[in-house]
Nucleic acid binder design. Structure first.
Length: 557
RNA sequence: GGCUCCAUGGUCAAGCGGUCAAGACACCGCCCUUUCACGGCGGUAACCCGGGUUCGAUUCCCGGUGGAGUCACCA
């Protein structure tokens, strides 16, 4: 019996050959330089910032070059499967405006290079495994779990590198007859790669391989010697094998993935070479890091860090555009510069490049996100922000949705407060912060939050508010209105101008700022806020007077 | 532990043999100002260490240190 016959025995149901698949999945007819990228999440139901980060790179690269960006579901491990996970992935990415041109979608698969679920591609993988077995480049391995554990323990004892390779790979030189016999006896097995690497090389003459990485330049690492499992006992391939076959057949040009894959790169390279597939351009992105409590950098972790979850941003109400811009600043070091030069261009016009990506891990910086978010929100019209606030509250704060619904114009005026002119306010960050920031506009959420200034006595407060109420005319324009405040200040013993007070602090009880703070607290409940006059115009005369009256009642009691 | 990746201010980062070592965020001060925000001006603050190579190293090489990743029939 030879390898060819063993392959036939192993895969009697596989009749297609690589030529058939090359015909079914021909090279893509794309223009020169078009990139084909993909996102290959495993459907665990958890999608995080790292996924979005990678997806964003894929999407930029593909759309910028007029290529294809497709979604492939890597569901080769049934233990990780979670119901509805694919929907979660697609919806989350769609929320952040990541769109696929091909692959798995909510409406089913789109494109000619499917199926896009790895679990449906078993026959395809097996065709190539069969070929490898026939060539003697892969073999059935009958090692049991216990035997493998024993090998590892032995290796630990003698401090040798762990794994099934070289002399440890007990079945790599099994005769086809013996293999056939065990198969017929029903012994369980997996298919392992028969690595062509020099397993017994001394440390000095280990063969090194060189790989060009789009982000990191030339990578040099030892060749693979491990007889890795390529087909599991259930006939489904491992990631390594599925990756190589799929990215070849789907004609992926650029494989963007996290740096955690770097160490298995030699395995992939060997597989590409043995299968005689062209090697795609690998782009290993840096990991997103975080500072832990002891001050060390570490990879963001799903369990420890809520900000890793995409849900965190949606929950807090960060605008998708803000998250995208933040990601872009982390991704491409020259983006900030470009943004300063082109404040009004859509970020899609920024020429994204792989070369400008950093190879060291970026620390997640919430401050930066907030700063960017302020600028991004400023460029979004109030009407759009209104819709955004409604969408956010409908999903995460249904109890406040009714505040906005039916009163969209009111909200729009609030959100636009102080945003016009050449020095617009930039204090809107995310939906939950916005609500906190503006809630005094809504009766149910209005309350006195801050104490009056220390230098203003209660009788003075009463006097100020009574005078204010008496002279208040809702029709006054801003300067008339403020002149009245100055007048009240003066006749109450407060300087009409802060500078006067600074010059002669002994002559006054305070200055006009203290007077307006008293009013501010009565009307807004807080000592700090945007312009009082504008706020009152939005609140309306009745509400304004009502709040001052009830403040007076309270002060007097 | 083996292997791999990474290393410029608190954070993100320009730099790619000769610079007073950019810029952004954060922080501090001043100005503007009825508060806050915005804006303007200014400030504190960095090339991990040790060897080489070189007339000259942040930059190139080697070693160390530190951080990270990875060593599954998980991806």
């Amino acid at each position: 019996m030879n390898h060819q016959e063993l392959a036939e025995l192993l895969f009697p149901h596989i009749h297609k050959t690589r030529d058939d698949y090359d015909r079914i999945y021909p090279p893509r007819a794309l223009k020169e330089g078009a990139m084909v990228t993909r996102l290959g999440p495993s459907p665990t139901g958890f999608i995080h910032l790292g996924n979005l980060y990678g997806a964003f790179v894929d999407e930029r690269l593909a759309t910028q070059s007029g290529g294809i960006f497709y979604l492939r579901i890597e569901d080769t491990d049934d233990k990780r499967q979670v119901e509805g996970a694919v929907e979660v992935i697609i919806n989350s990415l769609r929320f952040f405006d990541i769109q696929f041109t091909e692959g798995a979608t909510l409406e089913g698969s789109v494109g000619d290079y499917g199926p896009y679920y790895q679990s449906q591609r078993a026959e395809i993988y097996q065709c190539y495994v069969k070929e490898l077995v026939a060539k003697g480049l892969a073999y059935p391995c009958f090692l049991t779990e216990e035997e493998i554990t024993a090998i590892r323990e032995q290796q630990e004892l003698t401090k040798e590198n762990p794994g099934i390779y070289g002399k440890w790979a007990a079945n790599r030189n099994l005769s086809p007859e013996q293999a056939a016999q065990w198969i017929e006896q029903g012994k369980p097995y997996v298919i392992r790669l028969k690595s062509q690497g020099k397993a017994d090389a001394s440390p000095e003459d280990v063969t090194m391989i060189q790989v060009e990485d789009g982000i990191r330049g030339t990578l040099e690492m030892p060749e693979n010697i491990q007889d890795v499992v390529i087909l599991k006992a259930n006939g489904i391939p491992t990631y390594h094998f599925a990756h190589v076959v799929d990215d070849y057949l789907m004609r992926t040009t650029h494989v963007v993935r996290g740096a955690e894959w770097l160490s298995s790169l030699p395995v992939h390279i060997e597989l590409f070479r043995l299968l005689e597939f062209p090697i795609p351009v690998y782009c290993h992105t840096a990991q997103l890091m975080k500072l832990d409590d002891s001050g060390n950098k570490r990879k963001l972790s799903k369990r420890l860090d809520p900000e890793l979850s995409l849900d965190y941003y949606r929950n807090e109400g960060y605008h998708p555009k803000a998250v995208r811009e933040y990601l872009l600043t982390v991704l491409n070091s020259n983006f900030e510069e470009w943004r300063i030069a082109n404040p009004d261009l859509p970020m899609e016009e920024f020429p994204f490049s792989i070369e400008k990506m950093s190879s060291s891990g970026a620390l997640f910086d919430l401050n930066k996100l907030q700063d960017i978010s302020k600028d991004v929100l400023l460029r979004i019209p109030a009407s759009e922000l209104v819709d955004f606030m409604k969408g956010w509250s409908a999903e995460f704060r249904p109890e406040i949705l009714s505040l906005f619904e039916g009163r969209e114009d009111y909200l729009a005026r609030i959100l636009d407060l102080g945003r016009s002119g050449d020095k617009p306010r930039k204090d809107l960050i995310n939906a939950s912060q916005i609500f906190q920031f503006i809630r005094y506009f809504y009766e149910d959420y209005f309350q006195i939050e801050d104490p009056a200034p220390d230098n203003v006595t209660t009788p003075d407060q009463i006097h100020i508010l009574e005078a204010y109420l008496a002279t208040y005319d809702h029709q006054d324009d801003q300067s008339v209105w403020f002149d009245k405040i100055r007048a009240i200040a003066e006749e109450s013993g407060y300087a009409a101008k802060p500078k006067d007070y600074k010059k002669n602090p002994d002559l006054y009880k305070g200055h006009v700022g203290d007077v307006s703070t008293v009013i501010r607290i009565a009307v807004m409940g807080r000592s700090q806020s945007p312009d009082v006059w504008e706020i009152q115009q939005i609140l309306g005369e009745e509400t304004t007077r009502g709040r001052i009256r009830s403040r007076l009642d309270w002060l007097k009691s």
